[in-house]
Amino acid sequence: MTNSVTRLAIDIETVSPNHEYWEKPDFRDSHDFELLAVALAIQQSPGSEIQSEVLLRNGWGPESELALLSETVTRLEDAEAETYLTYNGEAFDFPHLRGRAHIAAEDAGTDGTLAERIDRVLSAGTSDDLKHDAWKAFGRYTTLEDTCAHMRVSQETPEWQEYAHGLNADDFRVDRDKGDPLLTGADVAQFGEHYLDWCDGDSADEKRCSELEELLRVYAVSDVVPLFELADSRPFM
Rank of each mutant, 00 (worst) to 15 (best):
A204F: 13
V73L: 06
D170V: 09
D180S: 13
L40M: 09
D146R: 12
V54S: 00
A164R: 09
Q44E: 12
E229T: 15
A186E: 08
V225Q: 03
P25A: 04
T2C: 09
L8W: 03
V38N: 02
R234V: 02
A81N: 07
A169L: 00
L56I: 11
R98N: 08
V38S: 02
R120F: 13
T2Q: 14
D177N: 04
L216H: 04
E156R: 08
A204R: 15
G89I: 02
T6H: 13
N88S: 15
C209E: 12
G201Q: 05
F138S: 05
D197Y: 12
F33N: 09
H31W: 07
S16T: 15
A189Y: 04
T110M: 09
N18C: 13
D180K: 06
G47D: 08
S210C: 05
T72G: 08
Y163P: 00
A91L: 13
T14A: 14
Q190R: 11
T147V: 03
F172I: 05
L215F: 05
R98I: 03
P181A: 05
P62D: 05
A164L: 11
D205G: 11
R120W: 09
T6V: 00
R75I: 12
L130I: 02
G139M: 03
E80T: 12
F228C: 07
S203K: 01
L167K: 00
T143I: 01
H102R: 15
R140E: 15
D177I: 01
D29G: 10
V38F: 01
T157L: 02
D202V: 06
E106H: 08
L97I: 00
V153G: 05
A91N: 15
R98V: 10
G89Y: 06
A134W: 01
P158Q: 00
Q161R: 10
F191W: 08
Q155I: 07
E159K: 03
T2P: 09
D171A: 15
L144F: 03
H102Q: 12
T126I: 11
L144N: 01
P62T: 06
Y195N: 00
R100F: 14
P235R: 10
L40N: 08
A79H: 07
I50G: 03
K24L: 15
A67S: 15
Y84N: 08
D29C: 09
R7S: 09
E13T: 02
M1I: 10
Q190C: 13
S233N: 15
D107W: 11
A79K: 04
L8V: 02
V224C: 09
L40R: 05
E106C: 12
E20K: 13
E206K: 12
R75V: 06
G192I: 01
A169E: 01
E13F: 05
A231G: 08
E106Y: 14
V54R: 00
P158I: 00
D202A: 15
G59R: 07
K207L: 05
D129M: 04
D175P: 13
L68E: 02
I50V: 15
Y84V: 11
E229L: 10
D205C: 11
S52G: 04
L182I: 05
